[in-house]
Amino acid sequence: MFHCLRLPPLLSGVLFGLLAGTAHAAASPAPDALQPLLATINERLSFADQVALTKWDSGKPIQDTAREAQVIANARKQAAQQKLDPEQAADLIAAQIEANKLVQYGLLAIWQAAHKAPDVPRPDLNQIRPKLDALQARLLQQYADFTPYRVDPECPNWLAEQRASLIKDALHGQALIRATGELCVTDQ
């Protein structure tokens, strides 16, 4: 017959405290490279609202396969300059594009339900694209700086903690989660 070992409450508390303290002590702080990377990802994501407005006004579809392919191809070319694997760079940028489209689809659905978009100044898509292209170079450099930390077991915790402070609403929060979903490499 199996008997469960019972420890006195004081000893149980001490053991629990030691184990909890060890786990807490083992947790390392987020690397300095994470915050700038998240800030740039969030900055890139903020352009989704402006792009959505241009798509609303023009009636053009959100999906722009040719432009997406061009942006991803540029990321592959820029990867060598940052000593990044071209496919990892392409995957990162593809995630940014998907996150931006998530916001655009969400905003268009909200505006369609309301039968109007916000009454704010409308940017020209041709003015937005060079800004996104410029952000890409910075994003890839920051990703290269963060790459050594992607495999750290604490990476998901760092990411969740620092990402939470950037979320402004549910739609943009989901998009930010999508944009950063593969920053950490974990053995699930």
Score class of each variant (00 low, 15 high):
133 D>G: 06
183 L>N: 09
16 F>Y: 12
45 L>T: 02
81 Q>I: 10
121 P>H: 02
79 A>V: 03
179 A>D: 09
120 V>L: 09
64 D>I: 08
158 W>Y: 08
30 A>V: 04
89 A>N: 04
35 Q>E: 15
35 Q>N: 10
40 T>C: 12
142 Q>V: 00
185 V>C: 00
73 A>G: 09
123 P>F: 01
37 L>V: 06
115 H>V: 05
95 A>M: 01
139 L>P: 00
183 L>M: 09
99 A>F: 05
103 V>P: 01
111 W>P: 04
93 I>E: 13
118 P>I: 04
49 D>K: 12
138 R>I: 12
158 W>P: 01
79 A>N: 07
21 G>K: 09
24 H>G: 12
180 T>L: 05
4 C>F: 09
66 A>S: 15
27 A>P: 04
9 P>L: 03
65 T>D: 15
41 I>A: 15
108 L>W: 04
178 R>A: 14
1 M>R: 10
171 L>N: 01
158 W>K: 07
124 D>R: 10
89 A>H: 05
56 W>C: 08
178 R>L: 15
117 A>W: 07
174 Q>Y: 06
117 A>D: 08
161 E>F: 13
2 F>W: 12
95 A>W: 02
98 E>T: 11
152 D>C: 03
159 L>P: 01
156 P>I: 05
148 P>K: 01
180 T>D: 01
121 P>R: 02
124 D>P: 02
4 C>H: 11
141 Q>S: 14
2 F>K: 06
76 R>N: 04
25 A>C: 10
68 E>I: 14
59 G>A: 02
22 T>N: 11
40 T>I: 08
40 T>K: 11
14 V>T: 11
60 K>Y: 08
52 A>W: 00
53 L>T: 04
42 N>W: 13
120 V>N: 08
136 Q>F: 02
125 L>E: 09
130 P>N: 05
132 L>E: 12
100 N>R: 08
14 V>D: 00
24 H>D: 03
168 K>G: 11
103 V>T: 01
97 I>A: 09
74 N>I: 10
149 Y>R: 12
3 H>R: 14
97 I>D: 06
7 L>W: 14
135 L>C: 07
6 R>T: 14
106 G>D: 01
153 P>A: 12
